[in-house]
Design a protein around this nucleic acid. Structure first.
Length: 233
RNA sequence: AGCGUGCAUGACUU
């Protein structure tokens, strides 16, 4: 059921219909209320299909909830533009973890509210919950979009003290942040120092060169990536 | 036992 439910949001058509029919089936077995994982998967499914109202109904009907259930509901509100509801639930949550905070921060980034994202990151730091690499990706994205180089560099230094410092997605985000803040040379250094790269790493540096007016370099890296066996997407 | 693939919440670029 969980596998089916988590696939619903990716269906091209009839997502809610399909999801709801699975819901009908699991309800006969009582799993929507009594099974935390099934309940959470339902909450997530409805929220991702744009039906936060139904997500909340399932959430309220659950006998047991864990942090994943709360986080799925908070994220559901955020991705459906219900910031107030998200924050209200966030405040009611028994104990917030990094994912709860990141759901809010990333939600603000998703709707281009970068200042709010950074304000909530500040709150998170004060709360004592340690950010993880997904949190920092959201923060770097906010910095990139604001062109906030000073904060971006602070974030970079902060990341270098963490055990996810060599995470590929983090490095990709650093490249993106520096190039969008106009520091293409630092972006290039980050790229050069990477132990492993993905197609996203190449895309980020190539786009970085392009938007900073370095067409030659962009083309050079475009052919370099193919020489290294990466297929442009 | 080993290898591989998955395993309900936040998930990098275009």
């Amino acid at each position: 059921f969980i596998t089916l439910l988590s696939g619903c949001a990716d269906l091209p058509i009839g997502r809610v219909i399909f999801g709801a029919s699975i819901h009908g089936y699991v309800r006969k077995l009582g799993l929507d209320a009594n099974d935390v994982m099934v309940g959470t998967a339902l909450v997530d499914m409805y929220a991702k299909c744009g039906r936060v109202d139904l997500a909340r109904m399932v959430f309220d009907g659950m006998v047991m909830r864990n942090s994943m259930s709360w986080n799925a509901m908070i994220d559901g509100y955020m991705r459906n533009g219900k910031v107030k509801d998200a924050i209200e639930l966030f405040d009611q949550m028994p104990e917030r973890d990094a994912i709860s905070w990141t759901a809010l921060i990333g939600g603000f980034v998703r709707k281009d509210n970068f200042e709010q994202a950074l304000l909530w990151f500040r709150e998170m730091r004060l709360s004592g919950v340690e950010p993880d690499y997904v949190t920092m990706i959201a923060v770097l994205s906010a910095c990139a979009n604001l062109g906030a180089l000073t904060l971006g560099m602070w974030t970079h230094r902060f990341i270098m003290k963490q055990d996810f410092r060599d995470n590929v997605k983090i490095s990709n985000s650093l490249i993106d942040m520096y190039s969008r803040c106009g520091c293409i040379e630092i972006a290039r250094q980050v790229f050069k120092k990477m132990q492993w790269r993905t197609v996203v790493s190449w895309n980020s540096i190539i786009v970085g060169f392009a938007i900073n007016g370095h067409a030659e370099e962009a083309l050079k890296f475009f052919s370099l990536m193919q020489k290294e066996g990466f297929k442009p997407d």
